[in-house]
C-alpha cells in the first residue's frame, strides 16, 4: 500500500530527473559529438583549392546519387600520410615526451607545495590557496611573454646567476627545451597543486602517527601511507596536466626552438599555414586516440575507488 503510493508520487520526479540527466547529454552531443563528427568527416576528405578547402562537399540537392558519391569519395589517405612522413610521428613522440616529463616534474614540484599547504595552521590555508590561484588573474599570454623577458640573453635569470657568480657567460635559455619545460611547469603548477592539496588536506594526521607507532620511520610512512592515500589526487592532477600539455601550442611556440616541434604546432601549421584541413583533422583524430588511453585508465581507477568507498 505504502509502496504503491510512494511509487505514484515518485513518477513525476523520475521524469524530472530524466530531464536533468538529459541536459549534460545534450551538452556533450552539441559541443563534443557534433564537432567530433565534423572533424572525423574532414579527416577522410581530400584537400582542395576551393571554398571550403576540401572535397567532397556534401550536396543535398543531388539527392540519393549525391550521398553515394559523397561516401565513395571519402578515404583514409590522410592517415596514411601521417604514418609515412616522419615529421608527424616525431612531433607526436616529442609531445608525449614533453607531456610525460613535465607531468613528472610537476608532481615532484607540486607535492611538497601541496603537502606544506595542507599542514600549515588552518587559518593560513585560504591565504596560500589564494597565492596558488593568483597567477590566473593575469592573462596567460602576458605571463609567457614575461618568461621570454626573464629567459632572454640579458634577462633576469642570467643577471641573477651572474651576480651570484654561478655562471660566467650568459646562458642561452630561450628557444630550447629547457625554456619549454620551465614555461609548462610554471603554467600548469596550480592544476597539479590543487588536486594534490585536496586529497592531502583530507588526510588524517593520526594515520602517520599510527604508522610510526607500529615501527615505521617517517620517510617510509610517506611511501606506505601518504602516497597511496594521495593516489586519487596524483591521478587527477597528472591527467589534468598531461592532456593539455600534449596538445600545448603557445608555450613551445613562444619559448621553444624551431627544431623541436610539438603536435599542437604541427596541427597549427597544417591548418593555418598549409591550409590542409583534412590532414590537420587526421592529426587531431590521432591525438584524441592517444589521449583517450590515460582517460580510460583514470576512469577505471575512479570506479575502483568508488567501489572501495562503499
Amino acid at each position: 500500500m505504502t509502496a504503491l503510493r510512494s511509487a505514484k508520487t515518485r513518477a513525476p520526479s523520475t521524469l524530472g530527473r530524466r530531464m536533468i540527466v538529459l541536459v549534460p547529454y545534450l551538452w556533450l552531443c552539441i559541443f563534443f559529438l557534433v564537432p567530433f563528427a565534423i572533424v572525423f568527416r574532414l579527416s577522410l576528405s581530400q584537400t582542395a583549392i576551393a571554398q571550403p578547402p576540401y572535397l567532397p562537399v556534401f550536396d543535398p540537392a543531388a539527392g540519393w546519387e549525391g550521398i553515394r558519391d559523397f561516401f565513395a569519395a571519402l578515404s583514409l589517405d590522410n592517415y596514411r600520410i601521417l604514418f609515412s612522413d616522419t615529421l608527424y610521428v616525431s612531433s607526436y613522440l616529442k609531445s608525449l615526451q614533453v607531456g610525460l616529463l613535465s607531468t613528472l616534474i610537476l608532481l615532484v614540484v607540486a607535492f611538497p607545495i601541496a603537502y606544506g599547504m595542507a599542514r600549515v595552521p588552518r587559518r593560513l590555508q585560504p591565504l596560500l590557496l589564494m597565492a596558488v590561484i593568483l597567477p590566473f588573474w593575469t592573462a596567460f599570454l602576458i605571463r609567457i611573454y614575461a618568461w621570454i623577458n626573464i629567459l632572454q640573453r640579458d634577462g633576469l635569470l642570467n643577471d641573477v646567476l651572474q651576480t651570484f657568480g654561478l655562471i660566467g657567460e650568459p646562458v642561452t635559455w630561450l628557444a630550447s627545451d629547457t625554456a619549454v619545460y620551465i614555461g609548462i611547469v610554471y603554467s600548469y603548477l596550480p592544476f597539479m597543486v590543487l588536486p594534490l592539496y585536496a586529497v592531502l588536506e583530507k588526510m588524517d594526521e593520526s594515520l602517520l602517527e599510527a604508522a610510526a607507532d607500529l615501527g615505521c620511520p617517517r620517510w617510509k610512512a610517506f611511501w606506505l601511507v601518504t602516497v597511496p592515500l594521495a593516489l586519487p589526487g596524483i591521478a587527477a592532477g597528472s591527467l589534468l596536466c598531461f592532456i593539455p600539455i600534449v596538445g600545448e601550442f603557445v608555450i613551445p611556440d613562444l619559448l621553444g626552438s624551431s627544431q623541436t616541434i610539438m603536435i599542437g604546432q604541427t596541427l597549427w601549421t597544417e591548418f593555418f599555414g598549409n591550409k590542409d584541413w583534412p590532414v590537420a583533422s587526421a592529426l587531431a583524430m590521432l591525438l584524441l586516440c592517444v589521449l583517450i588511453v590515460p582517460i580510460v585508465v583514470y576512469q577505471h581507477m575512479q570506479s575502483k575507488v568508488l567501489e572501495r568507498g562503499r
Binding site: 593520526s206 607507532d213 615505521c216 592515500l229 593516489l231
Partner: peptide, 27 residues
C-alpha cells in the same frame, strides 16, 4: 615513537583506509 616497544590504539582507531584488514594487522 617507531623505536619504542609500546603500541597505541588511537581514539579514532586510525586504521589505514587503503589496506585490507589483514594488511592493517600485518603492517
Amino acid at each position: 615513537p617507531h623505536r619504542r616497544a609500546v603500541n597505541m590504539m588511537f581514539q579514532n582507531y586510525a586504521l589505514f583506509p587503503h589496506l585490507t584488514v589483514e594488511a592493517n594487522v600485518a603492517f
